[in-house]
Simulated scan of single mutants.
Amino acid sequence: MTAPQRLTDRKREAIVAAAITEFRANGFEVTSMDKIAATAGVSKRTVYNHFPSKEELFAEILHQLWASSVAQLDLSYASDRPLRDQLRGLLQAKMQMMSDANFLDLARVAIAATIHSPERAQDMVNRLSKREEGFTLWVRAAQEDGRLNCTDPAFAALQIQSLLKAFAFWPQITQGQPTLDDASQADVIESAIDLFLAGYEVSASRPQQKPVA
């Protein structure tokens, strides 16, 4: 019973690896499930058994890149730990993903694939937004604990992540700039935390606002 499961896992991994190769080399539109199946050395039916559509497969690849960056990180909020330390861990994981060459290449593929297809763009946004819910949950937990003064946790979570993307994602995607070195990454992270805490951290002089119902 265990051997077939291991074989299934190996086939799934081969499909994902083949898809990464094909998407990076040829883009989203040109890459076909037939080509992915051939590169992976499996049947087209096997590919569809694992992934119902090319969009599902692409979303899974991006999810795996994110999951690998947070594999060793506890994303849950801790009331007994400094907010800065927790935010630093979250942002370091995000930065690690955005520094991955596979992720940047696939992000370019995704952007190119969605320019002429609003429906596909919305679908990919919906799928990827689910992958960032952990950050929103962390902000909401800190807000409910009385340590953050924000009425919209999702908005606040998007704000701080956008601060990273302004320096470590969009310049690399749109202008071909190199990924940031370690020192620059640390500077961007600390600056983002400074701005976020300055705007949202509850202090004795500023009482917490009630969240919007």
Rank of each mutant, 00 (worst) to 15 (best):
P4T: 02
R6F: 04
T8S: 05
R12L: 08
R12C: 01
A17H: 04
A17M: 03
A19R: 12
I20W: 00
I20E: 04
I20N: 00
E22M: 12
E22Y: 03
E22A: 09
R24E: 12
R24T: 10
A25R: 14
N26F: 03
N26M: 00
G27E: 11
E29L: 01
E29I: 02
S32K: 13
M33T: 04
M33D: 00
D34N: 14
D34L: 08
K35W: 09
A38Y: 05
T39H: 10
T39W: 04
G41P: 03
V42R: 04
K44T: 14
T46V: 03
T46H: 01
V47H: 00
H50N: 12
F51T: 00
S53V: 08
E55K: 02
E56H: 15
E56A: 14
L57Y: 06
F58H: 14
E60W: 11
I61T: 08
I61E: 08
I61H: 08
I61K: 09
Q64D: 13
Q64K: 14
W66D: 10
A71M: 07
A71F: 01
Q72F: 06
L73R: 13
D74R: 09
L75F: 02
S76A: 13
Y77E: 01
Y77A: 05
Y77F: 13
S79C: 05
L83A: 09
Q86F: 09
L87F: 06
L87H: 05
R88Q: 14
R88G: 00
G89P: 04
Q92D: 03
K94A: 11
K94M: 11
M95D: 06
M95W: 06
M97N: 08
M98V: 02
S99Q: 10
S99H: 13
S99C: 06
D100H: 12
D100F: 07
D100W: 05
A101G: 00
F103Y: 15
F103E: 13
F103G: 02
L104I: 15
A107C: 10
V109F: 03
A110N: 14
I111R: 11
A112I: 11
I115M: 15
P118I: 14
P118M: 10
P118Q: 14
E119N: 12
R120M: 15
R120D: 10
R120E: 11
A121V: 08
A121Q: 15
A121Y: 14
M124S: 13
M124C: 06
V125M: 15
V125Q: 14
V125W: 11
N126K: 11
L128F: 15
S129Y: 15
K130I: 09
R131F: 08
E132P: 01
E133C: 07
E133V: 15
G134L: 14
T136W: 07
T136M: 10
